[in-house]
Design a binder for these strands. Structure first.
Length: 539
RNA sequence: UGGGGUAUCGCCAAGCGGUAAGGCACCAGAUUUUGAUUCUGGCAUUCAAAGGUUCAAAUCCUUUUACCCCAGCCA
């Protein structure tokens, strides 16, 4: 096989394994527990695992790690599948840890027969008490030296429902004095009477992660089992199970640093709390950092993948700035989104020297020649955004001012001639006259103007709602208390070009900000710059 | 205090003994009918710190420091 250039440490490991002839095909897996929706952190793992599949022309399985029925639900398996597809990945095999319960049981029996596992009668409290501490060794259980026959019988009884939940557990017999707490006779099977979303009430005992995971990987012939850093301490146990159940050399566990994004909640537990306590409308609320939430916002899946490529893979804990993600979204939308004019806070603009109706050709996307144009009607009754006219302009203001000139994007240059204000001093209507022959290509088109503003024809503009997604759910500085504002999700009423009327059924527009008007505050995404319809990204 | 990890620009991140890639952010300028895009230029004499080895060290050795993870019958 020809040498593959590696771009991160995981690929380096794989390359070395390949060089040493350990494998002929590389197989990875994405193993979510169906207890919540996928979020941007999972996207990183997805990109790593499916990226390896693609790079080495191997395989990547989707395996639901459903070993704890008390937390899992089919709703989650469906959402997970949908989100992975949306992100653009195709798994080879769709598997469930629960399909292996029988084989896992046999492996446990095998361990007992080898004298490497025993049934322990300790209560949860007793196990905790005898586990020792970080600095002190644990104490051996008095049940540790039961005979193989007795253990076999007891374990079978556990399976057959002879005992109550928590009455007994199966433990691996390793080393209660190990400095690695995971090796202090870890529990590998517990009794749990809960209806499993796939196996129903067939099983009363369920394997623990540390026992189940290496077996799942081994059963499937996974070559590289990629997980996050917190499992580094579990690797000795992973290998212990693998070896003692007879899978040698078997899969190799590799750990990488999970993704953290500045001020973004990335823990399933807290995301679930937000959903359960109705801080949001659900897992797919556009404020959520879930893949489905991002889909609702109009984030293209390609942008998320690009983000994952750019942040890289390493073992150092890090926290990526949100500007990195936003950049990827902007970069993609810049090349794909149809530009549409939208006025979010409308004031009337009356053109005093124009009658009738004309049509302007609006470029769908200036960055793509083939994107074409669409028509926008023009009349004397227009709407512009309140922010685009200022009686007293702030410094460096580039839009309409009293007696000033400004270009209506895609149309004429206009000159301010007057305006009216209400009792509180807010502008209610602006009057202007257009400069004849000032449209693109015409003789007066070259006039110097302050800037270019958005507008819509009041006579046929459509009302729409926009998500003001300034607000991604964020944690308060330094703590995870759920004190974000419930109202932080603004849905703005706005007016858009009539062109959008027939676009597609939609409830809300998503828009992306490409820069704020204020120079020192342009880290966000820009309102009237790029508009993408969320439906265009429905996968 | 036991064990396992990690430290390279504000944020990610290459680098694997031969004299600090790249991206984001930021700054300056040019183009521009989106204050966008695009384009050009600037942004680590220094790699957590201190010693040492070497002609040569971010890379090797020693010591120190900081941060992260582990005591669920969760994953």
């Amino acid at each position: 096989m020809e040498e593959i250039i590696s771009t991160n440490f995981i690929e380096e490991i794989i390359n070395e394994d390949l060089r040493e002839g350990k494998h002929t095909e590389i197989i990875t897996r994405f193993p979510p527990e169906p207890n919540g929706y996928l979020h941007i952190g999972h996207a990183k793992s997805l990109c790593i695992n499916f990226g390896i599949k693609q790079k080495y022309q191997g395989k990547c399985n989707l395996r639901f790690d459903d070993t704890n029925p008390s937390k899992e639900d089919v709703e989650y398996v469906e959402s997970i599948k949908k989100d992975i597809k949306w992100l653009g990945f195709n798994w080879d095999l769709e598997l469930y840890a629960s399909d292996y319960f029988g084989r896992m049981y046999e492996c446990a029996v095998g361990l007992i027969k080898k004298g490497l596992a025993y049934v322990c009668d300790f209560s949860a409290e007793q196990i905790k008490e005898t586990r020792g501490t970080l600095t002190e060794p644990g104490a051996e259980s008095p049940y540790r030296n039961r005979s193989v026959e007795e253990n076999l019988k007891l374990f079978e009884d556990m399976k057959n429902g002879v005992f109550a939940d928590g009455e007994k557990v199966l433990r691996a017999k390793i080393d209660m004095a190990s400095p690695n707490i995971n090796m202090r006779d870890p529990i590998i099977y517990r009794i749990l009477r809960a209806t499993h979303h796939r196996t129903g009430d067939k099983w009363l005992i369920y394997p623990m992660y540390d026992f189940a995971h290496p077996l799942e990987d081994a059963f499937e012939g996974i070559t590289h089992s990629i997980c996050t850093l917190e499992f580094e301490d579990h690797r000795p146990l992973y290998d212990w199970v693998k070896i003692n159940c007879g899978f040698v050399p078997g899969p190799r566990q590799i750990e990488f640093a999970r993704l953290n994004i500045q001020r973004t909640i990335m823990s399933k537990r807290y995301l679930k709390k937000l959903v359960d306590e109705k801080f949001v409308e659900g897992w797919s609320d556009p404020r959520m950092p879930t893949l489905s939430g991002m889909r609702e916002r109009g984030y293209p899946p390609e942008a998320i993948r690009e983000f994952c490529n750019r942040i890289g893979v390493a073992k150092a804990n890090s926290e990526v700035e949100t500007s990195m993600l936003e950049y990827c979204v902007r970069e993609n939308l810049n090349q794909s989104a149809t530009r549409v004019m939208v006025v979010k806070n409308p004031i009337k603009l009356t053109i005093t020297n124009f009658e009738g109706t004309e049509y302007e050709n609006i470029e769908n996307n200036q960055n793509i020649e083939s994107a074409g144009v669409h028509k926008l009607s023009f009349s004397k009754n227009l709407l512009i955004d309140a922010e685009d006219f200022a009686i007293v302009p702030p410094p460096k203001y580039k839009r309409l001012v009293p007696d000033g000139l400004v270009r209506l994007r895609g149309g004429y240059i206009i000159k301010h001639t007057g305006h009216t204000v209400d009792d509180e001093g807010y502008v209610t209507e602006v009057f202007a006259e257009l400069i004849p022959n000032s449209r693109s290509g015409q003789e007066n088109a070259g006039m110097k103007v302050k800037g270019v503003i958005h507008w819509v024809n009041a006579e046929d503009a459509v009302e729409c709602t926009l998500n003001d997604y300034d607000y991604l759910l964020t944690e308060g500085s330094g703590d995870f208390s759920l004190r974000m504002n419930k109202d932080s999700h603004k849905v703005i009423k706005a007016y858009a070009e009539n062109y959008l009327k027939d676009a597609k059924p939609y409830e809300r527009f998503q828009f992306v900000r490409t820069g704020y008007y204020s120079k020192n505050n342009k880290s966000g995404l820009n309102f009237n710059q790029i508009v993408s319809l969320k439906d265009s990204y429905k996968g």
